[in-house]
Amino acid sequence: MYLKRLKILRINAGLKQTDIADILGIQQTVYSRYERGFQTIPLHFLVKLADFYNTSTDYLLNRTNNINSYPDE
């Protein structure tokens, strides 16, 4: 699954793949595979990135165009 928005959010935040890989506790090459769609990103990493970017997993998965995260209930 190609997650184009991961790359866009990372670049807009002024971060490198190594920065995100460090946040996730993985190697840059593994993160690069997630970003390019060569490897499926584990759900717990997807949730962590949604929290980091203050957005929703639906936005990352291209299921909505609303970049705002869901309000806390």
Score class of each variant (00 low, 15 high):
Q27N: 13
G37K: 06
T40H: 01
D58S: 12
L61Q: 11
N68C: 06
L9S: 03
I8D: 10
Y59N: 03
R36V: 11
S56F: 07
I23M: 10
L3D: 00
Y2W: 00
P71S: 09
Y34S: 10
Y70Q: 11
N66E: 15
A50G: 05
T18K: 14
K4I: 01
Y2G: 00
G37D: 13
D22N: 15
Q39R: 15
K4C: 03
D22R: 14
Y31A: 10
D51P: 00
V30T: 15
I67W: 02
I67T: 05
A13N: 14
D51T: 04
Q17V: 01
T29I: 11
D72F: 07
D19Y: 04
S56T: 15
M1K: 03
F45P: 00
T55S: 05
N54Y: 04
L3T: 04
S56A: 08
Q28K: 13
T18Y: 02
S69D: 10
L49Y: 06
D19F: 07
L15S: 03
I8H: 01
A13M: 07
R63V: 10
V47Q: 14
Y31F: 14
I41Y: 02
D22Q: 15
E73C: 01
I67C: 01
H44I: 08
N12K: 12
V30H: 08
K48Y: 01
Y70T: 14
V30S: 11
D19Q: 08
Y59V: 05
H44M: 07
I26T: 08
L61S: 03
Y31C: 10
